[in-house]
Design a protein around this nucleic acid. Structure first.
Lengths: 360, 360
DNA sequence: CTGAAAGCGCTTACAG
DNA sequence: CTGAAAGCGCTTACAG
């Protein structure tokens, strides 16, 4: 690491630049000849009509010229509305989250809200700490992407009477609104596709059962396998310790140990699918010739993997938008019921799935 | 999209739950028998010693039991410190930014700051709007990942006397601190590698020259090519309209039109490199057998592309951390000079580069 | 060691 | 239509 201090640019003419304080209503009122409450009324479009047009025009002009921006924080203190919403992510480096975040932000912005985003990891006490911070900052509501099926954090938020919405992952108890993708349907699509190709030995590498996505996708897999009348010994489920590439590789190894005849794998998500790729490659098996793999999420660049990954596309951006809408509604009407919004996923068939070898 | 309203859970026993207002110092003071200013002193570790130990203990106990969390916003109004820092991103879905953001957040958190993140796109007037919003929210400083080489937005921030730091991209004028990767060195590493493999016809697909990364990587390419005494006709530069896969594909097409003999491409970044992959594949050329490709950034999953991408790894997380540190310093000492922190990149050789065909 | 008061920058009834 | 006042929830000199 190199640090370079460029030579000081020509110093300001006369010693210290006065640390220009931000303008306030009163400063402006002193310049124009009006009471500062009048300026306040003009700055807010909703109350502007209370002021005579010519006065308003003059005020606006000066405000613009002087670059006056009312202090939203002071306003928020007075009105009891911070305009802040907290977004709690388990891991922003997981490529599912950025588009969700973008969706959230886009609808919040329309309503004059701004998100405070934190990476809270998976540790519950850290999550709680982070949420306390946000509450201290007067967030009006919370979007949690960290929810578990029976999440103490959710109970905590509920106790605080703070509006909460869960995104991507749901909560089993139905206490809070959530927007999720239809995981049962997704797994049905996945298994239908695999069976349609001729596969009869199918493995599922599930995500953690503590997460609704892990639990529900496993359920969906089970239901689908039953629908196709696969028998015991024709399918197998292995749980990965987390939604990560490495955990996927490990679980894939265990799957092959328990079920060596497997010809197709429905992975809990795309990262897990990548772990499967890693395992297969290490063990000289080709995908899809020897083993087919299906992912979940259709993360960015899933199409650019080798082979391009067949996966389930979930409506990430829309998911974020919808979560923000739900939260805004809840903030507006705290008494409104919890709602579950379920988005329809779509199987994207690419190069990682093919018919099993003729040998079958 | 399916929306389901679960049947109302057993309604709360007696009609409306009183919208529990958040506790304040005064509420607490009423419960205990002290003045609220005393509680204030106890809640802040720095002033706690001013209060008698037994009183402090009792206050802490009640505060904890009642889940009291002081209103940071009100405190900020009083102390003129919001504890907020604005982070302006061009596009959070570009995989370089999440790790940078994570780095920023991690050091901010240590100091009790919290980031407000916005996706501001590339449009300058939108960026300005967004920054005005943030200033209105009293951010104490700004981290810009959107900087251009001579950026009016930067000038604007400077005029407002708001502490600013630029990350990933620098600004030519040296007016603000920035943390960047050493782009000249990176391109030297890239060209050395390619020449070392035996390539003598090398193309560079540059990022936009308005961005420091685009400009400097092009400079670095030029310098490197000169060092190796490649002659005119042995190298070529083509500029992509943006750092995107599609723009990369297009520029690659133009490169081949202008310079069909090219055997190796140094791409402006990994997305552009992916665009090159797309073009090559469409036109029946194999990478690296027919054409070698080098990326820049080592974004997540660059190793999982086909072929695994040889690319320059930049220290993204560290970049974010350092930017946050620089900003915090500037907030602390507004008079401190602008500093450029340059992180050392590292060429990661993978499967997308090889010796040119023997034919040479 | 603790209390009482002023004030951060706003909004918004309340008068006039 | 405009002004004067109170108050949002804190912090922090200033007394005592």
């Amino acid at each position: 690491m190199v640090v370079s201090n460029p030579p000081r640019a020509a110093a300001p003419p006369t010693a210290v630049m006065p640390e220009r304080k931000r303008l306030t209503l009163k400063d402006l009122a002193a310049e124009i000849d009006v009471h500062y409450s009048t300026i306040s009324r003009v700055m807010n479009p909703a109350t502007r009509h209370l002021v005579a047009e010519d006065v308003a025009a003059r005020i606006l002009e000066v405000a613009e010229a002087r670059g006056f921006r009312p202090n939203r924080i002071a306003a928020g203190l007075r009105t009891q509305r911070s305009g802040l919403v907290g977004v709690v992510l388990p891991d922003i480096s997981n490529p599912v989250f950025p588009p969700i975040l973008a969706g959230i932000e886009s609808v919040l912005a329309q309503q004059g809200y701004v998100p405070i985003v934190v990476n809270a990891g998976t540790d519950k006490s850290r999550q709680r700490f982070v949420i306390d911070q946000m509450i201290g900052r007067q967030v009006e509501g919370l979007v949690l992407a960290t929810a578990e099926r029976d999440d103490p954090i959710l109970a905590y938020c509920l106790k605080q009477h703070i509006p909460v919405v869960t995104v991507n992952r749901g909560d089993d108890t139905g206490r809070v609104s959530c927007v999720v993708s239809d995981n049962l349907l997704a797994m049905r699509q996945t298994v239908d596709h695999l069976v349609g190709l001729g596969h009869r030995r199918i493995g599922h590498i599930a995500g953690p059962a503590t997460l609704s996505t892990g639990f529900l996708r496993r359920e969906g897999f089970l239901q689908a396998v039953k629908r196709h009348r696969l028998r015991r010994g024709e399918w197998q489920v292995m749980e990965a310790a987390s939604y990560s590439r490495e955990a996927g590789r490990l679980a894939c190894e265990q799957l092959f140990a328990a079920f060596p005849q497997v010809t197709a794998i429905a992975a809990g998500n795309d990262l897990v699918a990548m772990g499967c790729y890693d395992y297969l490659r290490e063990h000289g098996m080709r995908c899809p010739e020897d083993v087919s793999v299906v992912g979940h999420n259709d993360m960015p660049f899933a199409d650019a993997l080798t082979p391009p990954l067949t996966t389930v596309r979930i409506a990430v951006h829309e998911m974020g938008e919808e979560a923000a809408r739900l939260l805004l509604r809840k903030i507006d009407k705290p008494a409104s019921d919890a709602v579950t919004v379920q988005l329809t996923p779509q199987l994207i068939v690419r190069g990682s799935t093919a018919a099993p070898r003729a040998a079958e």
